[in-house]
């Protein structure tokens, strides 16, 4: 997935734009147009409904604009802050209704995930166990796994988004992965046994 990488000078231009937008909301349009596609894509991957993704994305930017006065520039790309709002918005959306939360990935991403999980089973079984395992995780844990393996974000950026260090993001992710691997192994073992019996 494409990710807007920006230079330090762009980060400081962004900071200036944010300051301007605090007093003149029209100026927010520049940042809106810059990040709308990325936020939309992220949300669409969770809800897999275009209209719904469009609405939620609008909500994210309305919230961002309304909270802009509280925004403090810490040398991070503005997108990190937007993502944090988007994550909250998505989590809240799924808490409020019983819709299915999706995790979307491409073939390449799936292979990488399979590698990380040391998984050698066939694709269907792997996906099924992965789904069951993820279902048992907390919102925060799913978000972490999603950002890293489904959205393919670097740890540095995940740290920026979640307000933790890069090292911490990495450690947390691998701790969850380890737990997932154990659960998956158990489950597959169990399934193989059942399969053997029948």
């Amino acid at each position: 997935m494409e990710f807007t990488r920006i230079s330090d000078s762009e980060i400081s231009t962004e900071a200036r734009l944010i300051d301007q937008a605090k007093s003149d909301p029209r100026r927010f349009e520049v940042l809106y147009r810059r990040y709308h596609p990325e936020i939309y894509r992220y949300i669409y991957h969770k809800v897999r409904d275009e209209e719904q993704a469009g609405d939620l994305t609008s909500q994210v930017f309305i919230k961002a604009l309304s909270k802009l006065k509280k925004y403090q520039h810490r040398g991070l790309p503005f997108s990190a802050w937007l993502f944090r709002i988007a994550i909250n918005e998505v989590n809240q959306y799924f808490r409020q209704n019983k819709r299915t939360r999706f995790l979307t990935l491409e073939d390449a991403g799936l292979e990488q995930l399979q590698e990380t999980l040391d998984d050698t089973s066939d694709r269907e079984l792997m996906l099924e166990t992965l789904r069951d395992t993820l279902t048992g995780l907390s919102d925060a844990e799913v978000t972490l796994i999603d950002l890293r393996f489904f959205e393919n974000r670097p740890f540095k950026e995940i740290g920026d988004i979640l307000g933790i260090t890069e090292a911490n993001a990495k450690a947390k992710t691998y701790r969850i992965m380890k737990r997932m691997r154990t659960r998956m192994e158990n489950k597959m073992h169990h399934e193989q046994k059942i399969g053997h019996r029948h």
């Binding site: 275009e50 019983k98 819709r99 995790l103 990935l105 996906l127």
Partner: peptide, 18 residues
């Protein structure tokens, strides 16, 4: 009580979709 599903989708969302 989460409902969760994994989707393999090889058509990326473009800026135009957004």
């Amino acid at each position: 009580s989460r409902k969760l599903d994994i989707v393999i989708d090889n058509t990326p969302i473009t800026a135009e979709d957004a």
